[in-house]
Design a protein around this nucleic acid. Structure first.
Lengths: 206, 206
DNA sequence: TCCATTTTCGTACCTTTGGTACAGTTTTTC
DNA sequence: GAAAAACTGTACCAAAGGTACGAAAATGGA
């Protein structure tokens, strides 16, 4: 009938939620299984029923994180594209919506798993490192696709679209670090709006 | 006679070098003391003679890291200012030299301790968190000071200088993550040159 | 050369953590 | 009501961070 979520699925979600929060605050190695199982209200055996070892936890945590981010971006894209047929305009809307979303967070942005894993890459196996790399490439492709569509309408031969797509990620990752370190949540949306401004200037006819 | 470096100082430097490299690759918690002492060729007691606990290691490592960075920036600044009296021009030179320096690194940038600590803040005490915050504020002040001098000569009322200073850090931190994750060392200098370009466009009279 | 300080080693011990192994039990679900 | 799913309990292991403290080199200056 309804979209039933099995009990196991719920427990797994609970573990992953707790793990993600802990990892973003103190790193993967310092996130102890004991801490997770007691917070999740299960036992060690229960944990190992769901994840065959800690590295499986890392992998599933990351995959889930990326799926959620992808959903968010797909949703923003759909909403932005619904509001304007002009590729430049709709991308500016998208960036504004993203900035608003980040500004509306109750606290400072908790952090990005890509950055966290990047600064602990030696802890992870090749599969996870590959996943991390792929996720960055996916984001780059997302922005690049939109920038290319803009460039078709507003050609600007001087601009390196790939570098400009990378810039979006740079703003996000760098902005999170700035926001987190200074504990000022406004910094991240402010920076994103600067990126938006930059995109507008580059493509807008003077 | 010469600037003698005591044996203890040498050992401490060796420990800090090893620790910094390990921390940037797998995080602080995963960097074991046993690993450091065996690599440094000392014993556990030897380690605890130099650092009263692991948290002292974290602190000294960070302080030393920031001193080195400060030196690098002070040196770049001195060299850039020697080449031009015009504040805009000398800052553009500074950014170019920084980009060149990063491009000349033999490998991908090893990472920034500010970002590493930021993503593991819960591991550290207030003193270290404060140090981390202060270091970002110092960098912001460094760039802000230069931007203000530029703005005196090339006024642009539309621009938020503080946000533009933060942008420099954002480019660096975000660029490191991008470079490290994709294992492409060219990305970081490329991004820095984009920041340089941005600064030039903002202040250059059309 | 002697003496004090600095630097390092040896050893023993304690707790937490990740991980393994595996048998047993309760809950769901069909 | 039976099979599959979702756990629990117990016992064990090696490695890690840390503590404590006494002894021994090494070094540096008088």
């Amino acid at each position: 009938m309804e979209d039933r979520i099995s009990k196991g699925e719920l427990t797994r979600t609970r573990i992953l939620d707790l793990a993600e929060e802990a990892v973003l605050q103190k790193g993967f190695a310092a996130t102890s299984l004991d801490e997770l199982i007691s917070a999740a209200g299960i036992t060690k055996s229960g944990f190992f029923y769901h994840f065959k070892d800690k590295s499986e936890l890392a992998k599933h945590m990351f995959v889930r994180y990326m799926e959620r981010e992808d959903e968010i971006f797909a949703d923003l894209e759909a909403r932005a594209d619904a509001l304007s047929d002009d590729p430049l305009h709709s991308t500016l809307i998208l960036l504004k919506m993203l900035a608003d979303m980040l500004a509306d967070l109750p606290e400072t942005h908790p952090g990005c798993l890509v950055a966290s894993y990047c600064y602990q890459h030696q802890l992870f196996n090749d599969e996870i490192r590959r996943l991390n790399e792929d996720s960055v490439l996916t984001w780059r492709a997302f922005f690049l696709r939109r920038l290319e569509r803009i460039a078709e309408v507003y050609p600007n031969p001087e601009v390196n679209l790939r570098a400009m797509a990378d810039l979006a990620l740079t703003f996000i990752e760098g902005g999170i670090i700035l926001s987190k370190t200074l504990r000022q949540k406004e910094l991240l949306p402010e920076l994103l709006l600067m990126y938006r401004d930059y995109v507008r200037r580059v493509f807008s006819p003077v």
